[in-house]
Amino acid sequence: MNSPLVSVVMPLRNAQFTIEKAIASLRRQSYENLEIILVDHASEDNSPALIKKAASGDKRIRCFRQEGSFVEAANFAWQSSKGELIARMDSDDIAHSTRIENQVGLLAAQPQLSACGTLVNILKRGEDGQPIPPEDGYKRYEAWINSVVTHDQILTERFVDSPIPNPSAMIRRSVMESLGGYQDPLWAEDYDFWLRLLEAGHKIAKVNQRLLDWYDGETRATRTLGRYDLSRFQVAKSHFLKRIPDILQLGVVICGAGPVGKEMGHLLSTAGVKVQAFLEVNERKIGNQIDGIPILDSGELSHFFGRAVVLGAVGQKGGRERIRMLADGCGFLEGKDFFCVA
């Protein structure tokens, strides 16, 4: 098999307690033709000294300092690399020893893929620094994100949540360049990247193995920066949903008049998308209105076939599958004229 150079790029900040283990996991990779690009993003702890020490002992490692925004650091990292394939990694995660080898193998076996990820173990660190299982919410998220593996699954469920754990990503350099790297929207730059990549017609899949230990720490950017708030993810979803031609032309009908459906309806209406109706199973809600839009019985879904795109927007357990069954029974095709959002 051809062995292209892989650039593992890692922007980091204040990671003195985790960076050495993260780097060690990369140095143990079974795939040898790689370089490791470490970009310190204005750390105030001992991180700069630790990455310099790592670089002094391994010629594959290059380290830099970048004083701009996190997105600027992430872009600087891959732009400073030389590899044909660019692998992302975070400073508090652990890559399993065959991660890079398996991802290179998948992209070689399926040249139609522009990028790939892996399955993950989502973990927390206890007070002693040892890994512990996450809370129930993250267990459900781990189950979901590990269930979307093929390109069709990822494409279909891209509005549920970000379908690729960013620290597990490997991207062809040519694709990264064609998309201009990461942009700096109001929402998460990695989710934005994947939605733009899919919108442009690129294909993604995952190695069907758990090859990354993905740690949820209290100081992780996803917990501390506003761009990663759930409300910002909803704005991102509405932004890309409104760019789907059938949604622009026909509008939507939203299955679910609870908090998720209400918020998505408001965002889409504000963006100029026609929300024709909300559909509900709760008899107490049927017959009411939300911002002047009627709430109808879910049994009326078939009347909207060919007249609107259906959005399944429910948060309760099992609700998404019930809407899928209803939409399928009415002839809607998920990923074409029916999408689940969460």
Rank of each mutant, 00 (worst) to 15 (best):
I23P: 05
L12I: 09
Y182F: 13
L301Y: 13
E280W: 01
G57H: 11
A55R: 09
E157F: 08
E199G: 13
S178I: 02
K285E: 09
L26S: 03
Y138D: 07
I293W: 00
L12R: 04
Y31N: 01
W214C: 07
I171M: 05
L26Q: 06
D184H: 10
H96P: 02
A327F: 06
G83V: 04
L186D: 13
L107H: 00
R220P: 01
Q66D: 09
M89I: 11
D93F: 06
L85C: 10
V148N: 01
A55S: 08
L5E: 15
L311R: 07
A74W: 05
K262I: 14
G83E: 05
R65C: 12
V275Q: 07
V39G: 02
Q183D: 10
T150S: 11
T98M: 04
K317F: 14
F76S: 12
S174Q: 11
W214E: 10
F338C: 08
N146Q: 13
S114F: 03
L119R: 02
L250S: 10
R62M: 12
V8M: 10
N2W: 02
Y31W: 04
F304R: 03
L250Y: 06
D92Y: 05
P4K: 10
L155Q: 08
D161P: 08
V39T: 07
A257G: 12
Y31M: 05
S56G: 14
N46D: 13
I36L: 14
S81A: 14
K203W: 05
D337G: 08
S168R: 00
L301C: 11
M176C: 06
P131T: 07
M1W: 03
A327D: 04
L106F: 01
L279Y: 07
G319S: 14
G251T: 12
A271I: 15
W78S: 02
L212K: 02
E135L: 14
V260C: 13
F305K: 15
A73E: 02
R99P: 00
E263V: 15
A54R: 03
L279A: 07
K237R: 12
S178D: 07
W194P: 01
S168L: 06
I154P: 01
A236P: 00
Q234P: 01
H151Q: 04
E142T: 07
T222H: 11
V9P: 01
N208G: 10
S97M: 03
P4V: 00
N146A: 08
G126T: 03
S80T: 12
D128M: 07
Y141E: 14
G57C: 09
E218G: 07
R172S: 01
P163G: 10
Q110C: 05
Q103T: 00
V252N: 02
V39F: 01
C330A: 15
G329A: 09
I100Q: 00
E199Y: 11
T224W: 00
R223I: 09
L241M: 15
Q110T: 08
R324P: 02
R173N: 11
Y182W: 11
N288C: 13
S269L: 15
V310A: 10
S162T: 14
G256D: 15
P111D: 03
R243W: 13
S302Q: 15
V253H: 03
E67V: 14
V120P: 00
W78F: 11
F17R: 06
E20S: 14
G272A: 15
G217I: 09
R125E: 09
K82A: 15
G335F: 05
N121P: 06
L211Q: 02
S174C: 06
L197W: 05
A15K: 04
V253P: 01
